[in-house]
């Protein structure tokens, strides 16, 4: 327990406990009975001809539906750091994508209070023919920052990315590491209330890896709500104060990090 206490001290957990944790106004994320289904047909009908023919033949085949999430409900209070556990295909990433607004759930509701920074696909918005500089603005726009804000953050982003002169070169000439450095620098330039992370983004070389995880930690220290998907139990134990374990689209267990993690590890050994 000694180590946990130390870590909790680092992350300022004590401050959080001062807040009335069950106050309604302090809910950052509320997910209620979330269901997500994807339609899967073995051969997708995407031309009008096929559609008409199959309708006429009454052979439209009931589209198979796959339920990725099946009635998930939970609440995350402001300032909480919640880890999401589960084996591959459990529905963790889908859940994060719904919370990031990419997918619309089939059923159920989600309520989010505050500005979200999704650190999911950090270099998705890059235009490879643009220079690094133009890409900062383009990507910033995709992450819903406005011009004024980006102007004020621009120097900080460039400095953090360590790209120096290369910022004026087209991104297509960047190495993979440089690209993710830039993506990370832009994505973390937001001052979010809620941070959604799919695997801690430790990108670049050793030096930058350290810097980027420090950056995330400093964001967390400011009382940001965190939702973290990770396969690293160590990381989850270090960061999160609450855990949700998802299996086949359902919540198996929810509660204190240590308890959930232990149960999760135990179940993985059984199989």
């Amino acid at each position: 327990m000694g180590i946990t206490d130390k870590i909790q001290g680092i992350f300022g957990k004590k401050e959080k406990n001062v807040l009335p944790a069950n106050n309604k106004n302090n809910v950052a994320i509320e997910v209620d009975d979330l269901v997500m289904e994807f339609k899967v047909t073995k051969d997708k009908i995407d031309t009008l001809k096929e559609y008409v023919i199959r309708t006429l033949k009454r052979n439209k085949k009931e589209k198979e539906k796959i339920r990725i999430l099946d009635g998930i409900s939970f609440k995350v209070y402001r300032g909480e750091r919640v880890g999401i556990l589960g084996f591959n295909g459990a529905g963790k990433s889908t859940l994060l994508r719904i919370l990031a607004g990419i997918y619309e759930p089939t059923e159920g509701t989600i309520k989010i209070n505050g500005k979200v920074a999704p650190l999911l696909e950090i270099s998705a918005g890059f235009d490879k023919n643009y220079t690094g500089k133009n890409n900062i603005y383009l990507n910033g726009a995709f992450l819903s920052m406005d011009e004024e804000y980006l102007d004020s953050k621009y120097d900080e982003i460039v400095e953090f990315s360590e790209l120096g002169e290369f910022i004026n070169y087209p991104v297509k000439n960047y190495s993979k590491g440089m690209k993710s450095k830039l993506g990370f620098s832009v994505a973390t330039a937001i001052n979010p209330d809620i941070l959604i992370i799919d695997e801690i983004l430790a990108v670049g070389d050793i030096k930058f890896k350290k810097k980027s995880s420090e950056k995330i930690q400093s964001m967390m220290k400011d009382g940001v709500t965190v939702l973290l998907v990770s396969h690293s139990i160590l990381q989850i134990k270090k960061i999160c104060d609450k855990c949700i374990w998802i299996e086949n689209g359902k919540i198996v267990m929810e509660g204190e990090t240590k308890k959930v993690c232990d149960a999760y590890v135990k179940s993985s050994k059984k199989k």
């Binding site: 607004g101 500005k115 979200v116 235009d127 643009y130 603005y137 383009l138 726009a141 995709f142 819903s144 920052m145 406005d146 011009e147 004024e148 980006l150």
Partner: peptide, 19 residues
């Protein structure tokens, strides 16, 4: 996300520029 007009305007500007 994209709650203010300034954010939408800036995105629009960037998208047109990209095109």
């Amino acid at each position: 996300m994209f709650d203010t007009f300034a954010e939408k305007k800036f995105l629009l500007k960037q998208l047109v520029k990209r095109d």
